[in-house]
């Protein structure tokens, strides 16, 4: 992450400029996520991506501008919205849960930053987090609706989301930077899915033969 192809302190136009900007954003995301916005300095971001402070200021007028630019970075692969055509099976629910865990692990620095910023009262972070959850909620609800009434599907959606939120936020707290790796493991996902099945009170469709 620190080894950059070359250091560009000037004002190159086009591709090189975009690449440097992207590198700064990645370094900033990691620093903010690790130390929080207040405790991160521009110097730390510069050190993380092997640039000078001055180079950072060439691209962004202030630390606050770096944070705001981060919010417009598209996360790695969104929560996939697959259509709910078949009645839901436990296997399909596991796929849905795994897709969410993929999203949270691929973007774990950004997710932690979003949580920290939302706690600091950052409205943009809070809105982005709510958007992500709305996509997740919609996908889960559509699938649960194939085997449950509207009320049941809506309650069950909230239950699955609350459980996964509790388990993954706890994972962030307990494992810090290592969370991305841990949540990628089959054990973590199996356990999460098993817990959801234990808590759910719905009649799944039988798996297709």
């Amino acid at each position: 992450m620190t080894s950059a192809p070359q250091s560009r302190n000037g004002g190159p136009e086009g591709r090189g400029r975009d690449e440097t900007r992207a590198r700064i954003l990645i370094a900033a995301r990691d620093c903010f996520s690790r130390h929080g916005f207040d405790r991160t300095t521009v110097k730390m971001i510069a050190a993380e991506c092997g640039l000078t402070d001055a180079a950072i200021y060439y691209y962004f007028p202030s630390k606050r501008h770096v944070l705001e630019a981060l919010w417009s970075v598209r996360p790695n692969r969104g929560v996939r919205g697959t259509p709910a055509t078949e009645p839901l099976t436990p296997e399909r629910l596991k796929q849905l849960n795994d897709a969410v865990i993929d999203f949270l692990t691929d973007n774990h620095q950004l997710m932690r930053l979003m949580i920290r910023s939302a706690l600091d009262g950052d409205e943009v972070a809070r809105a982005l987090r709510s958007d992500n959850r709305a996509t997740w909620r919609r996908a889960l609800y559509e699938h649960l609706r194939t085997i449950a009434t509207e009320d049941e599907a809506s309650f069950t959606t909230e239950l699955v989301m609350a459980y996964i939120t509790g388990a993954t936020m706890r994972g962030h707290m307990e494992t810090g930077e290592a969370f991305g790796e841990i949540a990628r493991s089959a054990e973590f996902r199996e356990e999460l899915h098993r817990a959801c099945l234990e808590l759910l009170d719905v009649s799944f469709a039988s798996p297709a033969v």
Binding site: I115, A118, L119, G121, R126, R129, S130, R133, E158, L159, M161, A162, Y163, I164, T165, G166, A167, M169, R170, A195, E198, L199
Partner: peptide, 23 residues
């Protein structure tokens, strides 16, 4: 114990989410 563990994770998830969502 399993049930109590599930309850703790579930309820803390709901509580944390409310703090983050509703400020």
């Amino acid at each position: 114990r399993r049930a109590a563990q599930l309850a703790f994770t579930l309820l803390s998830g709901a509580f944390w989410d409310a703090i983050l969502t509703y400020g």
